[in-house]
Design a protein around this nucleic acid. Structure first.
Lengths: 246, 246
DNA sequence: AAGTGGTCTAGACCACGAT
DNA sequence: TCGTGGTCTAGACCACTTA
């Protein structure tokens, strides 16, 4: 086995076994190089492996540190099924609930040409102008996820959905008041590495994959009236659904 | 901007714009090094960035190639809600349905001590013996995902769930016949990079994240009787749910 | 000023799969 | 045998943060 893989394996095992705990610092590159009698570049290759696996993070000039994941519960069903139905679910939320955090968000409204993904799901021609309501949601000032909702222009024009302010009752409720109540939605999840733009917008560490959650909402007539793209960093979320047999 | 980032950006843009299409080959490291007048290691660093992003893959000794993703539809609701309810959903499956593929699977049964994750969800002491039914599901001989279901030993002992063979009607049906019909389930999804063991078992390319899908099934009495860990490679799946307003 | 990781070079040899 | 990417070295200089 190559030297860099042996180095990666050593620290991977130490992290898995708990010998190194989240927040702990690793030895410096030079110290590892001496310990293994290899060049510094070889050490860097080994540690880069663990960075790509999301196990450690380099914080210059402090050193390498073991990462931690904190999973906020992300529950797509919340908007269509406000109360959890089962006692198991209540228990789940009790265990993983968050306390004493300060949520905040930024909102931008823009008119944009529909990308292929949006156009297909909203059933409009590619490039047609749609309304985009882009949000970054944060907790304690740190970005947690993004939420970019797209509406057909004719559905929401002249409404307050187009103003870049919080809509307390929610855009779904406002959309319903405009005559476009949603009765059905399709959720899709794509798992991939983030784009550089997403890395910047969400301040992602290397080795952090994301889930792209696409929601398409339909009226009773079967018309799609909303397409939301949520970007969920893997180190900050657990996605939860509740299901019953029919 | 460092040279290796310029190199990464060039090919990232070419892939995003379609100038390089899935399956296309990139120039060799040496060619890129000459083009940018940099050392080969610098080129390697740039291309390694794109490998980690999942955009390209190195196939020695053939060169670097643009990756492709083929998303099989993964529908957790299928086991509890056999028919899609909405016309939008039918359309979805028509668009992304798979044709003419040969599915296959391997099955292993073992008795294992419950890991913390399993023990917590099955509500048994950590380390208690549980039955594990481990499967690798393949299409055309290529692994697609893994499915490791765990049962409390007392629920399934002496039943054919413990034989390493296909159970045509499904383990949920057999479990129901044993008196443990499931009426409710919780789905959890964790997004992360794969472990080296998962990379090996599923033959994953570098830069491929996975979703860990954990299903916990409950009887009408609220007893958990099954905990399944599915590992879904991001380049092979789209996870789909259908939702209705209540 | 010191020490960390980040970038880069110019070489070397190796492993592997095609031809 | 050839050309590809994979591993490794011994150096160099830089950017950044903290002491």
């Amino acid at each position: 086995m190559p030297a860099y893989q042996r180095i990666a394996a050593e620290y991977r095992n130490k992290i898995a076994s708990g010998a190194l705990r989240p927040g702990d610092r690793l030895p410096t590159e030079q110290e590892v190089a001496h310990a293994y009698t290899v060049a510094r570049q070889t050490v860097r290759q080994g540690l880069a492996t663990l960075v790509a696996e999301g196990l450690i993070v380099a914080q210059r000039p402090h050193g390498y540190f073991v990462r931690q994941r904190e999973h906020m519960v992300y529950r797509p069903q919340a908007e269509s099924r406000p109360q959890p139905a089962s006692p198991e679910m209540d228990r789940y939320f009790q265990q993983i609930s968050s306390e004493g955090r300060k949520p905040s968000q930024t909102i931008e409204i823009s008119l944009v040409p529909a990308s292929p993904e949006i156009a297909q799901r909203l059933d409009v021609p590619e490039g047609q102008t749609v309304v985009a309501r882009r949000r970054v949601r944060s907790i304690n000032g740190e970005p947690v996820n993004t939420n970019d909702t797209h509406f057909p222009l004719d559905a929401v024009k002249d409404s307050d959905i187009m103003s870049p302010e919080d809509i307390p009752q929610g855009t779904n409720q406002r959309l319903a008041e405009l005559g476009f109540a949603q009765v059905r939605a399709i959720d899709e999840f794509f798992i991939r590495m983030p784009t550089p733009e997403e890395v910047h917008r969400l301040d992602l560490a290397a080795g952090t994959p994301v889930a792209l959650h696409i929601v398409t909402g339909y009226t009773a007539e079967g018309r799609p009236v909303r397409c939301t793209l949520n970007v969920l960093p893997g180190d900050r979320h657990v996605i939860v659904y509740e299901r019953e047999w029919e």
